[in-house]
């Protein structure tokens, strides 16, 4: 059997269903390069804001068994420089790239969208759900049905590119929020952002390990939450889902597909298994398909909807 994990996402052919998640490696154009060289089928930029952001002071990551806390604090070079990195990447690559953007209101999201329209990006992701800037911006927009609906609707009216809404797991009813994004015209959903936030304490110095005190939880330990929320959402919407949260091995990716994800995001696993993680997971997905007689990704069965 010819080794291929070709599929498509929002009408674009892709060579692997694996997506480099926003926030991971996506600062320099060469970070995208190295990810696709190692098997990613789609890459995502850092969430870009109108102005550059230095992010939080360190420590910005804290490890524990089963997961990672992070509070990068939306560091990014700003929309102008960030899109320059995207355009530089696209000069030498046909691999689709998602321009992720972050703002706190519709007007700024529209400004960001106008910038992205002029770039060589392929998709636009609205980060409605960063959990690590609460002190600065308060409750994430993704917690409000109305905000999500209004922003997605406004952005859809002017965006040249398909719009993806990135949702937070840290809400009471993610399915209603997903439906609000869909009814506002979102082309796809990306879920889940990090869980919590959570915290860890240094017991000798009696201080939170993260300088921001709290940070979003990622890694293997959040996979069951991600699978459940993706499955519930998949059951209720008709737009594709980029499923992510704790995907580390091929088996996790298969579970994501079975839960209803169209493609699969990989982030923290870059730490666990190196930048080669994409090729490793591709290989493991392929082995699973061979063992179980699935000819291509579309043959892998999904769970019956709820």
């Amino acid at each position: 059997m010819q080794k291929s994990l070709k599929t498509e996402f929002l009408g674009r052919p892709i060579t692997s269903p694996l997506v480099l998640s926003a926030g991971v490696m996506g600062m320099a154009f060469s970070g995208f390069n190295i990810s696709i060289e190692n098997g990613a089928g789609i890459v995502t930029s850092k969430s870009l804001t109108l102005e550059p952001r230095m992010g939080h002071k360190g420590p910005v990551v804290a490890e524990f068994e089963g997961g990672l806390l992070n509070c990068m604090g939306l560091c990014n070079p700003g929309i102008v420089d960030g899109l320059t990195e995207i355009d530089q990447f696209k000069k030498c690559s046909d691999i689709p790239i998602i321009a992720s953007v972050f703002a706190t209101n519709t007007i700024d999201f529209l400004k960001l969208t106008s910038h992205v329209n002029k770039s060589k990006a392929d998709f636009l992701e609205l980060n409605l759900s960063c959990p690590n800037v609460f002190d600065e911006f308060g409750i994430p927009l993704a917690a409000s049905l109305e905000e999500v609906h209004n922003i997605v609707k406004a952005v859809k009216q002017i965006s040249k590119f398909p719009v993806i809404a990135k949702l937070s797991p840290n809400v009471y009813d993610i399915v209603s929020i997903a439906k609000a994004a869909e009814s506002a015209g979102a082309d796809a959903l990306c879920m889940i952002n990090t869980v919590g936030p959570g915290m860890l304490i240094d017991t000798k110095m009696v201080k939170p390990v993260l300088f921001n005190k709290f940070g979003g939880l990622s890694g293997s330990c959040i996979k069951p939450i991600a699978l459940k929320l993706i499955y519930q959402t998949y059951s209720a919407v008709n737009i594709p889902i980029i499923g992510m949260g704790g995907v580390t091995y091929g088996e996790d990716a298969i579970e994501m597909l079975m839960a209803g994800a169209a493609v699969i995001g990989v982030g923290t696993a870059v730490h666990y298994r190196g930048i080669e993680v994409f090729n490793k997971i591709n290989e493991e997905i392929f082995e699973f398909m061979e063992e179980n007689g699935y000819k291509d990704l579309n043959n892998i069965p999904r769970l019956e909807k709820l």
Binding site: V24, M72, H271, I275
Partner: peptide, 14 residues
């Protein structure tokens, strides 16, 4: 920043 190869801040071009 992270020192564990995920945040991308110390990525060197190209």
């Amino acid at each position: 920043k992270c020192a564990i190869g995920i945040c991308g801040n110390c990525t060197m071009d190209p």
